[in-house]
Design a protein around this nucleic acid. Structure first.
Lengths: 122, 122, 122, 122
DNA sequence: GTGGTCTAGACCACT
DNA sequence: GTGGTCTAGACCACA
């Protein structure tokens, strides 16, 4: 089993949805270190997507250091130290925050207005 | 002349970059009502993008009510009441804010942490 | 046209053969900066491989910084400074050299024997 | 006991790692002629790899003439004359050297640069 | 069983 | 035209 929800209508690619959800679960410590991910075939069947789509997601996860692969055996959650995780998390957050603030600023929003909106939408 | 910066390597489509920057300028009142936009050809030459791309951006702007077209004469900034503008602005902001908050929440950020980051990045 | 030779019988994957040959040409300065690579489709047809195989090679090249992509327009040779190129080249060479020397050393070869072999095979 | 180090994450197959390390030990005379290799089951347990993998490595070693099998009794280091060993060793070395030189040559390295690198990395 | 590579299509958005 | 994504198969090496 794997705890992912795929939206076929979303405009973010399926493989990226998978990447984001799994990486986020690893970052939050919801997946045990060295535990195995479902095999590409199993995940594909479960999520009703193509094998190649799953593979692409797994590849991205490996390239980002979230999982490691042992050919013929499967893919496993990498041994990230809590520090590694904090760094990865911060990177993700700061990168996005920078772009977001740029956007709101561009529309003439003050910092107070933004924080107000944040509270309302949270 | 037109005050836009295009990034060819960005992964947001060029026409959308144009849409966002122009609509934001109109919303902020930086473009005079009924003033004319540059012709599609001129804009294309200035920004070094395809005519088709400019056409698409202008179409999107018209569809969203930011500009209007007079066939054979060009495109002009629409007469938006300040209320219209507020509504459009709010729509843009709220739609994006909803998605953004979802993302940060998903990474385990509290509302306080988000507002803290907002202040730092602003 | 593109100057690549593919061996279907080799045990190095096709996409990797393409990556190595193109990156090596860029490193050696045989491809002009900002010149366009053949489109994925064209290259696939010319080399008689699948589109997806070419795409994978192009992707690796982009990830390694050798080329950049403009969606809807094509892929282009990146503007590498001669210093960038030297660094990339050194990295490739040293990484491989380390493994190779390890191998020969492991078989009991002295440094003189290796250099002797190098001269003979060059 | 058997003196081998296996890397599960390496991209050279496990059975090949085993083959290379054992054959190299035989070539260097570090394993006594007619001495017995550990049983497949023992080796598999010690190295924490699959029995099938060990079997494949032993098979390769036998096919290359490094060991011989006595059914029901185990596998033993073959009686290689020093000449046999020299030939096998040369074959391995020359085959690899040919490919390696090709690679370095392709990156524009002169024979002097290569020998220089060899000395530095040795 | 596993992942790695590859094919020959397809549809889409963008230029 | 371009690249981006996806599908539903296939064959292979590896464990």
């Amino acid at each position: 089993m794997i705890d992912i929800i795929i939206s076929n209508t979303s405009d973010t690619p399926i493989y990226q949805q998978m990447f984001e959800q799994i990486s986020s679960q690893i970052i939050k410590g919801h997946m045990e270190i060295n535990s195995s991910l479902p095999s590409i075939r199993t995940a594909a069947k479960e999520l009703r997507v193509s094998i190649i789509t799953v593979k692409k997601a797994w590849e991205e996860l490996e390239r980002s250091g979230f999982i490691y692969t042992m050919v013929g055996r499967g893919c496993f959650v990498a041994e990230l130290t809590s520090k590694d995780i904090q760094v990865k998390r911060s990177d993700l957050i700061n990168e996005k925050m920078k772009v977001d603030i740029e956007y709101y600023k561009n529309l003439g929003l003050s910092v107070e207005e933004i924080t107000e909106l944040v509270k309302r939408h949270y």
